[in-house]
Simulated scan of single mutants.
Amino acid sequence: MRRLLKPRRLFSLLALLALAALLALGQSFRVYERVWFKFNEWRHAAQWQEQSIWLPDYRVVLEAQPIEGLEDNVSALTYDPDRQTLFTVTNKQNELVELSLEGKVLRRIALHGFGDTEAIEYISRNVYVITDETHQRLLRVELHDDTKELHAEDAQQLALALGRGGNSGFEGLAYDSLGKRLFVAKERNPVHIYEVRGFPYEQSAQPTAVHVVEDLEHNRNLFVRDLSSLQYDERSGHLLALSDESRLVLELSANGEPISSLSLLRGMQGLRRSVPQAEGIAMDDQGTLYLVSEPNLFYVFKKREAP
């Protein structure tokens, strides 16, 4: 009997270690939160479907189209309602690139002195904010139809020393033009969304104060593994958060409650293949979603008509 006890104890120990590893892995990939969220998404579908963006109704209509003439890694995406075009940035050559709604390159604008550009956001006619991830800077720039290059020293700048910088800095931007709020996404360590009021400056003179809100309710239930991009929807007041590692677009209510999601995995939302590395998301006036993935892939998602 004594000889049988040792193998049994070893088996029990190995089983406990395997269980602990599975629990740790599940926690790392936020499996339990995602399962609970999917249950609540299904349970509250009737309540939220008419009051939200409701991402489950979206299907891909243009998948993984290479952006011709653009070989560098694209990062971020924003929609310009005045030009009815899209803008992205490349984080190797530091270029600002204007795209058509079909993913065609319209023009390329050189960026000088901007560091590691990871996000761009439309603010108002000809006004944008660009992030410098390495130095945790926000830069306000003006972009006109004849602009061929932009210099960082000419831009209004706001430095935000929030947490650790490096390659885990600001990855996404979204702007609420009615509330004059700029949402800033920190990629990881930890995943976090900040709210900035008072920047960009409306006048050339510096404002008396810039207010940064760190304890947003949006962070309390944010179960994604990283953040790549943000999009604010003024019709619903909801925020879209794009996560590359979680392969997910998450809709957050004005109170920070997760409401709906769009999966970027193969077989979901009509996708034939998983989106390899989602880096930017934007929404136009019609509610159409545009997405870019490294190195240069372009996607379009449209909402199905209600029966």
Rank of each mutant, 00 (worst) to 15 (best):
L138R: 08
A278P: 11
V60E: 10
N219W: 10
R304P: 01
K148G: 11
V300R: 13
L252F: 06
M283C: 06
G287Q: 04
K92Q: 07
R140G: 01
Q156C: 02
Q203T: 14
E133Q: 07
Y299T: 09
D233T: 10
L138K: 09
W54C: 03
K303Q: 14
V224T: 09
R225T: 04
G256L: 01
G179H: 09
D154K: 14
V97L: 11
L138F: 08
L143S: 06
L55N: 07
S229E: 03
R43V: 01
H144D: 15
R2P: 00
E71F: 12
F114S: 04
F170W: 01
T78D: 10
G169Q: 05
G237D: 08
G26N: 13
N219P: 03
L111I: 08
S243K: 11
F223G: 08
G172A: 06
V35W: 04
V300C: 00
Q47M: 11
N126G: 02
L17R: 13
E187V: 03
L271S: 05
L96I: 08
T78S: 11
R59Q: 15
A282H: 13
P258D: 08
L13G: 03
Q93A: 14
H211Q: 11
G198Q: 04
L10I: 11
L19K: 00
E305S: 12
Q65G: 05
A76W: 02
R181V: 13
N167L: 00
A254S: 14
S246Y: 08
E153G: 00
L160R: 01
T117K: 09
L227Y: 00
V292W: 11
G270C: 07
A174H: 09
T147D: 01
H44M: 02
V60M: 10
L264Q: 06
L178P: 00
Q84M: 12
A205C: 01
V275L: 05
E257M: 12
R83M: 13
H192Q: 14
E279C: 05
E98S: 06
F199R: 00
K186G: 02
S124K: 15
E149A: 15
L227M: 15
G103S: 07
Y194N: 04
F170K: 01
S124I: 06
N94R: 04
L178V: 07
L96D: 12
W42K: 15
D226C: 06
L150E: 07
T208P: 07
V74D: 13
A241R: 09
R34F: 07
P81V: 07
Q65C: 10
L262S: 02
L70F: 07
Q269V: 01
K148H: 13
R140W: 00
I130E: 05
A45E: 13
W54I: 00
G179M: 08
V141I: 13
Q47N: 08
N219C: 04
N219F: 04
V275A: 06
L158G: 01
Q47T: 15
L19N: 04
F114V: 04
R2A: 15
E153Q: 08
I130Q: 03
R220W: 03
T288Y: 01
V196A: 02
G270H: 09
H211M: 09
D72H: 12
Q231T: 09
R30H: 13
L62T: 14
H112A: 04
A205M: 10
K104D: 15
Q84G: 03
L252T: 00
P258R: 06
